[in-house]
């Protein structure tokens, strides 16, 4: 029998892995990929909680849907900014972004 605790545990471990990636990665693309892992961990937690605790409205599963929308928007804007950084500095590493001036 799989319980809500199993899903929340998986979500928490996934979130911890993503957090580790966001901090240790030095390439902006890899950082954005880790952020995707974080968002997916949150979506799993929402969807599982909705299935177990909200058997009438399943609001959390709709919320997971909106998380995917926000993730897609975040990623497209993030990659556009990354392209600008790459054109400006010729690199996609995190430590080349040292000033806000264009």
């Amino acid at each position: 029998m799989i319980t809500l605790g199993h899903f929340l545990a998986l979500s928490a471990v996934l979130f911890a892995i993503g957090l580790f990636g966001v901090i240790t990665r030095r390439n902006l693309i890899a950082v954005l990929m880790s952020v995707e892992i974080l968002l997916n961990a949150a979506a799993i937690a929402f969807a599982a909680t909705a299935a177990y605790k909200d058997p009438v409205f399943f609001s959390g599963q709709l919320f997971a849907l909106f998380i995917m929308v926000v993730a897609a928007a975040e990623l497209s804007i993030g990659f556009a900014i990354l392209l600008n950084v790459f054109r400006h500095t010729g690199s996609a590493a995190t430590d080349v972004v040292e000033e806000m001036r264009g």
Binding site: L4, G5, L8, A9, V13, L19, F20, I23
Partner: peptide, 17 residues
């Protein structure tokens, strides 16, 4: 940070079946 985050997990493991 990852270990601290995972420590918060214990609260949920006893969720009712």
């Amino acid at each position: 940070l990852a270990v601290v985050f995972l420590a918060g997990l214990w609260a949920y493991l006893g969720a009712p079946q």
